[in-house]
Design a binder for these strands. Structure first.
Lengths: 149, 149
DNA sequence: GCGCCACTATCAGGATCCTGATAGCGTCGG
DNA sequence: CCGACGCTATCAGGATCCTGATAGTGGCGC
């Protein structure tokens, strides 16, 4: 059981394979979003904000899985580019609702087109049915790991 | 087609789901490996080295998907802890073969036990058959994205 | 033999995200 | 009324990995 080590001992573990695959895919996502001068996380912020306008900074952080501290600088860049607006006075301890501008929505749609193309079954090396299966299984894994939402 | 934005527009995209799932899983992997005072990448290095002793720093970097520059510090830590040995004189432009010590192999096995447990179908919320399917599909995605190896 | 070249390791600086600590706001019980 | 508490935003410092540039090694053709 604990004989010689072989590389294949890890190949049968779905979560380890998942992380390796994501590492690869994540790099490509980075390049894809860079064409729109966005980071993957920034794209996530835009998407969340389009679905639920008026989200606060911390709430947004929860949804894209980063810490609230990381949001400040990230959002600052988007605001400077006119893609987001801070609504309300803001300030040290006051919640700041964020909103998407028209430019922000337009950029989101443009980036989404690329993302959809990038996810086409052909680009994945899978059939449409297999891509659907993969997606469903991944959602199950997420649901198991995040009982809340 | 470009109507109102809804959050579900991204939910059907396998690669985007993949990255989100990996984000979650990656955090748990980090905690898991932290119990052995390892980072996920360091575990990868140990595993690669167990499978193929004598690998050079750059070759190792290629296999664990980081840049050679990131390896120096990472390996330094492992050498200081006596898990790895640099074989040969080394120096500025000379290839430095790395090797695993007995302690390194022992730690690798201990960590692997945790990883296997973490990957049990129960922990994934999947049946064994589904876990196998997921793993196979992910390997297909990796293969498509890395025609070489 | 000698310069060119592919490769390796390393230095320097930057981007991103983290943990821990600090400060302002609003509510709710006493 | 007011102090405790929970929440929000922010500051400070650190970890990790990146790109770009520098330096040493060994092989190859001329």
């Amino acid at each position: 059981m604990t004989g010689e080590w072989s590389e294949q001992r890890l190949d049968g573990l779905p979560l380890w394979t998942l992380v390796r695959a994501s590492h690869l895919v994540g790099q490509d996502f980075g390049q894809l979003f860079a064409r729109h001068r966005l980071s993957p996380v920034q794209f996530g912020v835009l998407a969340q904000l389009a679905a639920a306008p008026g989200l606060t900074q911390t709430e947004l952080a929860r949804r894209v899985l980063v810490r609230p501290q990381s949001m400040a600088e990230l959002i600052g860049g988007l605001v400077e580019r006119g893609l987001l607006v801070r609504e309300g006075p803001g300030g040290r301890g006051r919640p700041v609702p964020l909103g998407l501008t028209d430019d922000g929505l337009a950029l989101l749609r443009a980036a989404e087109r690329d993302v959809v193309e990038f996810n086409s079954p052909g680009a994945l090396g899978l059939t449409a049915a297999e891509a659907g299966q993969l997606n469903a299984l991944l959602h199950r894994v997420i649901a198991t790991r995040r009982p809340g939402a």
